[in-house]
Design a protein around this nucleic acid. Structure first.
Lengths: 213, 213
DNA sequence: AGACTTATAGAACAGGTGTTCGCCTTGGTC
DNA sequence: GACCAAGGCGAACACCTGTTCTATAAGTCT
């Protein structure tokens, strides 16, 4: 990739801005007026160069057929994760149902980049209510990204429902000969041991997002 | 939002798929053939409904002037945040310099959606080393999204360098008459009081991302 | 049965839009 | 000066595309 002239850089910037503002790419004439260029053929000229250099992809004969490559090859492949409910100490943990999967119908969704979910399926999100999970280093208001599984590997963090206590918690799960060890993420705190029959794995925690301010 | 008919759901899905594949929205006639509809007016009819119900935004008289709303208004803009270093108890906190801002030059970047940075400028990221910040509910390996500021509002979480102790920590900062109170995020833990001259604010924490598994 | 809503069909219009063509200007090289 | 490449200009063409109009059929309510 060679270095771009000021005008070419300006065109790239304009296309990007236009795309963000409108949700669709500009026409040649949009670029013309937006960048103060006096002829459509000049725009075409620069677009050819930008395509040759790999900054955009043009779809011939297609109106607005300009694809921005530099700022978004994968840009549209972002993942919409439905927020299906909240997780609190004394409440049952919401479990996704076929209905809640429909992202377009979900009341609330968060948008994450695929590197967080790593292409995993069955991902949903829960909002943490209350500060009962500080021992998992998770605070009130945090968002927990979950994957729907019924078994977890030793040492993975999971959303656990304790039947007898009627309590939801997030703990690292270790299966041991006699019982199941539930280890807080904060290594200074001591583990809890539970009977296998008392433990219901409701999903695996794959990420935690805390937004402040 | 009412429930959509199968055909309307199909149109939404098609627009989304088209957008992912091509980088620009479909025309009415693209939707027509893509969804097996026999007239452009029928497409128009359904698009009106979808707009009324808030699923899309149409830009009148604009070719391909269809914006998908349900799957991310701001969908095209993602933010590249440079990871400029790590934060550990006994090390000075890295501060961004003009060089480190250049996202293309940064050794490592993470990609986040704009709702995390909320359009703020001067955002960078630090990787947390060691578990000295568990009282801030932040663990080894977490990624802290920072904004470069020298002063913070009362109660905001900040990266603080304690000159005398030569120690970096993340605390909620409260300016009080006599001293500065540094409050751990975990409300069960007691605050630290520091002389104003001993405290160096290195940035504001705007989000924490923890990726497990 | 009649009135009304929902959904569909086909065609046509007017303006939007990518593309091309010929010509011009500037600056550097031989 | 002659030549050439890069960049610019304006107009014109032909197709693309949103929109509108009219007509039809099925279902629903009164």
């Amino acid at each position: 990739m060679r270095v771009l002239s000021a005008k070419q850089q300006g065109i790239i910037d304009f296309i990007h801005r236009f795309l963000v503002d409108n949700g669709y790419p500009p026409t040649v004439r949009d670029i013309q007026s937006g960048c103060g260029i006096s002829s459509t053929s000049v725009v075409d000229y620069h677009l050819r160069i930008l395509e040759k250099d790999g900054y955009i992809r043009r779809h011939p004969e297609v109106s607005r057929g300009i694809e921005l490559l530099t700022r978004s090859v994968t840009s549209l492949s972002r993942v919409q994760v439905p927020v299906i409910g909240q997780i609190a100490a004394g409440e049952p943990i919401p479990v996704p149902t076929p209905d809640t999967w429909d992202v377009t119908a979900a009341a609330e969704t968060i948008e994450v980049t695929p590197d967080l979910t790593q292409g995993r399926g069955g991902v949903y999100a829960l909002k943490v209510k209350g500060s009962s999970m500080v021992d998992a280093l998770i605070n009130d208001g945090d968002i927990v990204l979950m994957q729907y599984v019924n078994v977890v590997e030793n040492g993975e963090m999971a959303a656990v429902w304790l039947r007898a206590e009627k309590e939801a918690t997030l703990k690292k799960v270790y299966v041991e000969p006699e019982s199941i060890r539930l280890q807080p993420a904060n290594s200074q705190m001591s583990p809890v041991y539970a009977e296998p029959g008392n433990v219901e794995i409701q999903g695996r925690v794959i990420a935690v997002i805390r937004q402040l301010v």
